[in-house]
Each structure stands twice: as structure tokens, then as C-alpha cells.
Computed example of a mutant assay.
Amino acid sequence: MKLGILGGSAVSALPGLEGGHRHAQETPWGWPSDALLEGEIAGLPVVFLARHGAGHHIAPAEINYRANIAALKARGCTAVVSVAACGSFVESLPPGSLAIPDQIVDRTWGRPSSFFGGGLVAHISVADPVVTELAGHVAAAAQVWGIPHEQGGTYLAIQGPRFQTRAESRLAKAEGHSVVGMTAMPEAALCREAEMAYAIAAFVTDYDSWREEVVTTAAVMEVARANREQAGFLVQALCARLAAMPLSAAGGWAHALDEAILTPRAHWPTEAAARLRAIAPRFFA
């Protein structure tokens, strides 16, 4: 297998990377956020992409999510782990800990969230947007380094780039969400359309705004910097596990499109089908 790693504020280096080289990868949906960094970690082929670009210059709502996921697919990735920063709604996930959620609530808007369209329709199932097996490997990797973590719970995806108001934060906590971030959607849905496994490793930087303290960018980035070393160690241990125990196709992610495409083949527009070849070659090659 080949692992795609989407890095945000939580990761800036890949300890143990061997044979690293950069690759520019254009897609039918444009260019990804940055050049792809390819190599091997602990014997596992990996592709790293900085989702906010070099120097963190792309805001969450401005990311070309379709190009990012399509570029990872084009380089042969079969699974994607999002290493990101998040805020916490629960005392059991304090700053410095790791959340490995299994569900997502999407409150983003205006982000292109599907590769399909243009006369070719598919309805993908994302009832379980995170692949349990992959999330379990993330949790086991955290255990190796003694990183305090919690597997399960709900990631609330918000539009950003601003943080939440205190009322929004307290409402989210009352709704039972575990953490809040700005990038898991449409990443998770696009990975499912591209038939790649997806999991989230979200390093907690703050308690959002449901407590009395005010969340500031300076405070968040201070914790994020402290989390980066742990994020690098986590990725290294995760790669070692996946090299020894590659993912199975359990959960259906590898065949997610089998019954999802509604438009009959005879009615597939040539242009739309040609684009989709990049993310679903077994259907559109």
C-alpha cells in the first residue's frame, strides 16, 4: 500500500523519510496546494502534501480539496491520513492530546465537495467517513510513543478561517461533538469517491471557546508547535505498522463506487468521464 499524508498546522517534518523527492502533479481539477513530497518511511511508500501550501498561505475555505485528493490518487495512494490541529469540547482531550474521531458533522459551505457532476451523477455513501481499521492503526501508533489519545467521537467541520463564537462553541459542546476543525470535509467525502481509506489524527491545541478563556491564534500556534514533534513520531510509528500490516478492504472503501454511479454508461459525457479517470480508473479508463 501507499499512504498519503495531508499535513496542516500539526505537522511540518517527516522524521525517517528516505529517498525524499518532490513531484509536481497537475489534476483535472487544477494544481494541489503544493508539490508532493514522496519517499519511504519505515519501508512504507508515502506521499506528503501540505494542504495549506508552503508557508501556510491557503485558508481552509480556499484549499483546492479536489486537486489535493486527486493528486494523491494519481501518485498511487490507497489510504490518506489527515494530520491536523483541532479544538476540543471535552475535558478528556486537553491541549497536547490526540483525537482520532470516527464521525464528522459538516458545517462548511461553498466548497466543491464531489468529483462528479457535469452530467455524470454518483451518490457516494459516507455513513462511516473514517475507516475504522486505519483509525485503529493511528491509535496503536500513538500508543507506541505514549501520546495521550482518544479514539472515536465526532469532528465538527466548520468553515473558518475564524474561530467560533462562545455561543457556537457551547452549542457544539451541547450537541455532543468531540473536536472542531476546518478541513476534514470535504476531504473525507472526496477520499471515499476516490476509493481511498481515510482517517484523522487531530492534535488538540485548545478548548475552543466553551470555557471562559479566549482562544487566540498566538496561543493555538504555541501549542501546535509543541505538537509537531509528536506528530512526526506518530507518522513514523504509523508507517511502520502499515508496512507490516497493510490495510484490508474491510468497510467497503475500496469499492465505494460499485453501486454509486447512477448515470447509465451510454449517457456519460465524454468530458466528465475523462476527468473522472483520474480518481476512478477502474470505471473510466
Rank of each mutant, 00 (worst) to 15 (best):
G55Q: 11
D128M: 03
D102A: 02
P32C: 10
A99S: 15
V11M: 15
A67W: 04
R66E: 05
A139P: 04
A224Q: 07
G4Q: 09
T183N: 03
P269L: 09
W268Q: 08
F48A: 11
K173A: 11
Q230H: 14
Y198L: 05
G117T: 08
G232S: 08
P94T: 02
P246K: 01
P45F: 13
L93K: 00
M182Y: 03
G160C: 05
P95I: 06
F116K: 00
A197F: 15
V126Q: 11
H23E: 15
L17K: 03
I100W: 09
S97L: 02
E150C: 08
A199H: 02
L257D: 04
H123G: 01
I147W: 15
A273N: 08
G118Y: 02
F48G: 14
G136W: 03
A50M: 12
C191V: 06
R107K: 15
Y198P: 05
A243L: 08
A42H: 12
G20S: 08
G43H: 07
G152S: 10
A240R: 12
V105L: 14
G251M: 09
E222N: 08
S125C: 05
V46E: 11
C86K: 10
P112S: 10
R211N: 08
K173T: 06
H21P: 08
V47Y: 13
R225T: 14
I104C: 08
T263I: 10
A260W: 07
D258A: 12
L14E: 12
A243R: 04
K173Q: 15
R192N: 11
L171S: 13
R211M: 04
G96A: 00
T263Q: 06
G8V: 00
A273T: 09
V215D: 01
L3C: 07
V131G: 08
D208E: 15
L6N: 00
V83G: 00
S209F: 02
R162N: 08
L238Y: 10
E91R: 09
T205F: 01
A127R: 10
G39E: 12
M185A: 14
G153Y: 06
L37Q: 03
